[in-house]
Design a protein around this nucleic acid. Structure first.
Lengths: 124, 124, 124, 124
DNA sequence: GTGGTCTAGACCACA
DNA sequence: GTGGTCTAGACCACG
């Protein structure tokens, strides 16, 4: 499991961890049932605080992506694929898009302009 | 100038003010040269602290949307239209869209799905 | 005497008046002995507060450029030419230059770069 | 990081801090990636309010000289050298020089006189 | 009256 | 511990 913390990124460290784990599950690099490194292990590896990793894992558990078994470590939930494609996520994404549209209008762009910009964006 | 603070919104108050003023300039409700309420006036009206309004006005000044003249009040800058339609804003919006696309991919959506969702969003 | 207040300029109004009067004396447009408009007259003409003009005239008097005769108006002092070319002014200018040099160093420019830039400036 | 506040200086305290930090980055005493003292630490050391230091750091962030990461401290941005040598700064300096030249003309000096004075100034 | 600066003290999320 | 936000109250120069 390859994770890296960007020092210059203003995103909270615990969110950087959550996002990258979520991405790896979505892309299939992490599969249901697969074991994640222990909290202490990952904290040591990333050189961040144990509490921070703890918070990330709890967040992922809350989303239903991780199953945490005390004293036995954390594994990717078998329900993870459902969670990632769920209607709830569509709602989350919709909210994010609404926020961007509001921002766009503030900056003086209409929906068509946004759609055009979005189409031009790399799939990077 | 109609502004309202949403207590339940997590967005910092000073940003709510900035966003709403920005929106009103973008939509033409506030025109270049028009005078804004004094910091004290607006603070009293919104029932927030003077320093908070001050922070908002300073932010808007920084963006080039306001011209603030000590002891004479603040007016919408005549350069505001340029600022709002500038190439710099296109870059800002692009960055926001890239962030949303990353988020979408994490949630298991591809670009076409995002485009479809965006088209369905109200122009509210 | 042609004076105009720039609304968008952040320079205090009373200083805008002082500077323009000083300029007109330096350039010869206002000559020693010549009468200036009364405080009330100028205030009405520029649409600014009487106190502001009063402050400007007092400042000019302080510099030795104006002689104010109560109830009879203000005239350009016959000593004005001496004041404008004096050693005291050289000191003032030197201080302004020192401030600019400090600013330049902060922005990453050395003295040679500043001299080059200054030479390139229009004599506008 | 050595900073000192001059009580007798009319320059606002938060600007004194900004200027000195900027100077130290320009002169290489503070290098990209280097960590600055926390707002509380610096406030205690300079015996000024935390909010004042906060204002300074926010200003430096705005200029692109600092990267501030909540709960992780502030570091000199890796883009700081670009910011300090940029064309935008040349414009800023040019504007300052134009202002000084106007002032000089008001005081009765021409450009050659100014150049001569500038050359004589210590590089202090 | 106006905006600008500063202090003191508080609460928050994050590490 | 860190930075970010907000309040209350003060003083200043300027109009």
């Amino acid at each position: 499991m390859l994770i890296q913390i960007r020092e210059e990124d203003v995103t909270p460290v615990y969110l950087q961890v959550i996002n990258q784990v979520r991405e790896q599950i979505a892309s299939g690099k992490l599969k249901p049932g697969e074991r994640l490194p222990s909290v202490r292990e990952l904290a040591r590896f990333l050189d961040i605080n144990v509490n921070t990793v703890q918070k990330s894992y709890q967040g992922l558990k809350q989303m239903g992506l991780l199953v945490i078994r005390p004293a036995r470590g954390a594994i990717v939930s078998h329900k993870a694929p459902d969670v990632l494609g769920s209607a709830q996520n569509e709602r989350l994404l919709k909210e994010a898009l609404v926020r961007v549209m509001k921002e766009a209008r503030r900056l003086g762009f209409d929906k068509d302009a946004v759609l055009r910009l979005l189409r031009d964006i790399e799939a990077s």
